[in-house]
Amino acid sequence: MNSTQSLISELVSQHGKKRTSLLPILQGVVEQEKFLTEFSMIEIAKALDLPASDVYGTASFYSFLEHKKMGQFIIRVCKTITCDMKGKNQILLAIQDMLKINIGETTPDGKFSLLQTNCLGWCHKAPAMLINDEVFTEVTPEKVREIIGTYMKRND
């Protein structure tokens, strides 16, 4: 068994071999591996006795269950109305400039991916963004450079 297979069998024994466990299992894999591969989705399908197409169909519905290769740190900048009013474009420019990637891309070293997302519920502290599941609010171009700088130094 490779590490993905053992992760999946662990998740299946934790949540149970039933349809309602599909989402928690997908979420568990994404938490560990950042995105779903064809391999992991087929393994989940086998473990739950579901058609692989069904697993893919479900996973691809949810924007937080990435099924494209993602970096270790996924940056999601809120693009909804209040964040836009409060200057999210400058934030995006600052990130793109720093990491030299566009929206939807991953840095060559596989460390960062840059995405946009809809309202994160931090409109009173706009602009807001997420890095994995950590929230950053009232970000400015300076702040965002500092934040990403500290993530760059992390080697976990």
């Binding site: 039933k18 349809r19 309602t20 466990s21 599909l22 989402l23 928690p24 997908l26 979420q27 169909g57 479900t58 519905f61 949810y62 924007s63 937080f64 269950l65 997302t117 809809n118």
Partner: peptide, 24 residues
């Protein structure tokens, strides 16, 4: 139960399908 980034799952029938492990 945790959502996975789909606004329409706030609609109650979609929310229930999502909890059942289906597309929301």
């Amino acid at each position: 139960k945790y959502g996975a980034g789909a606004f329409v799952c706030g609609e109650e029938t979609a929310l229930i399908h999502s909890m059942e492990g289906l597309r929301g």
